[in-house]
Design a protein around this nucleic acid. Structure first.
Length: 423
RNA sequence: GGAGACGUCGCAUAGUCCGGUCGAGUGCACCACCCUGCUAAGGUGGAGAACCCGCAAGGGUUCCGAGGGUUCAAAUCCCUCCGUCUCCGCCA
C-alpha cells in the first residue's frame, strides 16, 4: 500500500505516477474522498466512545442504589456508539480497499508507458556468431538427453518437463554457483515454504491484476508461490526488524509455480515458459533511504552472474506500465538467445520501496525512535531458464556444449557436454 | 482422523472460575540516572503497537490469537475461525 500521507499531502504526485503507469487517475480522488470520510467517521466514533468510557467509570464508582438510574441514562449512548463504530469500520474498509488498488508510486526516471517503452541501459558481451546452423536450446538439450518434454506432458501436461542427466546437473550447478555468489555477498541462504496463506500472497501484491497467474489450493486455502519473494517477504511480516546493523539479505532457493494463463501459444517450445521451475532469489529488507543504492547492488550481482557464465546480455529499465503492483522501479537483465534473434529475460530486480513493507506490517526503528515501514527489494540470481541461453550461446557444430569455466567446479570439472543417445 | 491442553504488552508468566478497583501485576532483558575503585550486585525512574485531532505542547480511541455476540461496561461470559503443543490412530 502507498503511504496514506502522500494521498493527503501530495495527490498530484500520486496522479503523476498513475498516469505514467497508464492506470486510473480517478482512483486517487476516490481514495482521498474515502480517506476524508474515514477520518470523519473515526473522530465521531472516538468522541462518543470517550463519553461512554467516562460513564462506565461513573457507573462502576456509583453506590448500588444509583447504578440502575445511571445505566438507564446510557442506553441510548451505547446504541450511538455501536452505530458510529459500525460506520467507522465500514469507512475504514472502503478506504483500504480503494487505497490498496493504487499500485506503488513509480520512482523518478522510470520511463512512462507500457511493455515496449523500456529503456536499454547497456548491452554487454559479444553476441555469439556461428558458422553453422545453430540449434535451439531444446534440440541441443535433446541431443544431450538433458530435457524430456514429451514425457513431461504425459505426466503433468503442457509446459511441464523432465530435466534429466546433464540437464538436472546443469540446473543444480547454476543454482549452486548463484548460491556461492550470494554467500560471498553476505546473503543468508533460505529454503522457504512454497505454499503460503492468502494474507501473505495478498500482502506481496500478487493477487492484484495478476491473480490468475497464481495456483490456488481451495481445500487448504493455500497459494503456490511463483517466486520465493512471497515467502521471504512474509518471513518478517508483522514484525519490527532491526536494521541498525545493515540490511537483512536473504537468498531463497525454491521451486516456483506459474499458471501462465493468457500466454497460450507463446513460447511453447522448450523450457522458456513453464509452469514449474527453480529459482534462486535475492530478497532484501532495508531502510527507505538505502533502497535505490541497494537496487543497484542487486543488479550488479545479477550482471556478475551472467558475466561469469559468458552470456551476452542487455539491461533494461522497465517502463512504468510494465511494473508489478508493488514495484517502484524494475531492471531486467535479458540474455541474448541466438536462435530467437532476441533478448530474453533471465533476471528481474524490483525496488518495492515501502509498498510491501506497509502491506505486510514490516517496520524498523527510524532515527527518531519511531517505527517506519521498511523498503523491500528482490532480484533473481539464477533460474532454470538460464539453461536456454547457456546451451545456445555455448553450442558447437557437433551438438556439444562448452561449459563456462565458472560452472565447471559444480559439474565435477566437466568441460564439454557431449551428445548421447536418448533413452 | 479421534481426544485433550493452550494462545496476555521483547521473552517468561499472573489475572479469566466470581465482568467495573485491569491497558493489565511480577521476573528477565532494555534505556537513563544514582551508588560502590572496575565488573557483578543494588537503588530511582523510564519504556508497547496502531490510528485520530493538533503548528506544537498535548489530548483521545483501539489493541490480552482473529472475527462476531451478550452487557451501561468484556482479557474475564457465549459463538465461530485460526494457530501451537501433547496423546492415540494412520501414513512414510
Amino acid at each position: 500500500m502507498i503511504d496514506p500521507a502522500l494521498l493527503r499531502d501530495s495527490p498530484e504526485l500520486v496522479k503523476r505516477s498513475q498516469t505514467s503507469r497508464g492506470a486510473s487517475v480517478d482512483l486517487v480522488d476516490a481514495a482521498r474522498d474515502a480517506d476524508a470520510e474515514r477520518r470523519e467517521a473515526l473522530t465521531s466514533f472516538e468522541s462518543l466512545r470517550a463519553e461512554q468510557n467516562a460513564y462506565g467509570k461513573r457507573v462502576a464508582a456509583a453506590p448500588k442504589e444509583e447504578k440502575a438510574a445511571l445505566v438507564a441514562q446510557v442506553q441510548q449512548l451505547a446504541a450511538d456508539v455501536k452505530a458510529a463504530g459500525a460506520r467507522a469500520n465500514a469507512a475504514e474498509e472502503a478506504f483500504t480497499s480503494i487505497a490498496r488498488g493504487i499500485p506503488n508510486i513509480v520512482l523518478d526516471g522510470v520511463p512512462a508507458g507500457g511493455e515496449d517503452d523500456y529503456v536499454v541501459l547497456r548491452e554487454v558481451g559479444e553476441r555469439p556468431v556461428f558458422d553453422f546452423a545453430a540449434r535451439d536450446h531444446l534440440e541441443i538439450a535433446e541431443g544431450l538427453d538433458a530435457i524430456d518434454m514429451a514425457r513431461g506432458a504425459k505426466v503433468s501436461g503442457a509446459r511441464f518437463y523432465f530435466l534429466k542427466g546433464i540437464g538436472a546437473r546443469l540446473e543444480l550447478a547454476i543454482m549452486s554457483l548463484g548460491l556461492d555468489h550470494a554467500l560471498k555477498a553476505g546473503f543468508t541462504p533460505v529454503i522457504p515454504p512454497t505454499l503460503v496463506r492468502p494474507e501473505i500472497m495478498e500482502g506481496t501484491g500478487f493477487l492484484g491484476e495478476h491473480a490468475d497467474e497464481v495456483y490456488y489450493l481451495p481445500a487448504d486455502e493455500l497459494y503456490l508461490t511463483g517466486t520465493s519473494e512471497v515467502a521471504l517477504a512474509g518471513l518478517h511480516s508483522d514484525e519490527i526488524v532491526d536494521l541498525s546493523k545493515g540490511p537483512l539479505r536473504y537468498a531463497g532457493w525454491s521451486t516456483c509455480y506459474r499458471r501462465e494463463a493468457g500466454s497460450y501459444g507463446r513460447d511453447t517450445r522448450g523450457i522458456i515458459r513453464v509452469h514449474q521451475f527453480n529459482k534462486l532469489e535475492m530478497f532484501v529488507y532495508t531502510t527507505p533511504d538505502q533502497a535505490e543504492a541497494e537496487h543497484e547492488r542487486l543488479l550488479g550481482w545479477q550482471e556478475s552472474m551472467l558475466q561469469s557464465l559468458g552470456l551476452s546480455y542487455r539491461v533494461i529499465d522497465t517502463a512504468a506500465g510494465d511494473l508489478g503492483t508493488s514495484a517502484a522501479r524494475k531492471f531486467d537483465v535479458e540474455a541474448w538467445v541466438p536462435t530467437q534473434d532476441a533478448y530474453r529475460e533471465l533476471t528481474s530486480t524490483s525496488n518495492c520501496t515501502t509498498y510491501q513493507g506497509r502491506r505486510l506490517g514490516i517496520r524498523a526503528r527510524g532515527e527518531s525512535g519511531r517505527t517506519e515501514p521498511v523498503a523491500t527489494l528482490n532480484g533473481t540470481l539464477a533460474t532454470t531458464r538460464w539453461i536456454v541461453a547457456l546451451l545456445e550461446t555455448r553450442q558447437r557444430e557437433d551438438g556439444s556444449v562448452v561449459v563456462p569455466e565458472a560452472l565447471r567446479p559444480y559439474l565435477g570439472g566437466l568441460e564439454v557436454l557431449e551428445p548421447v543417445t536418448a533413452q
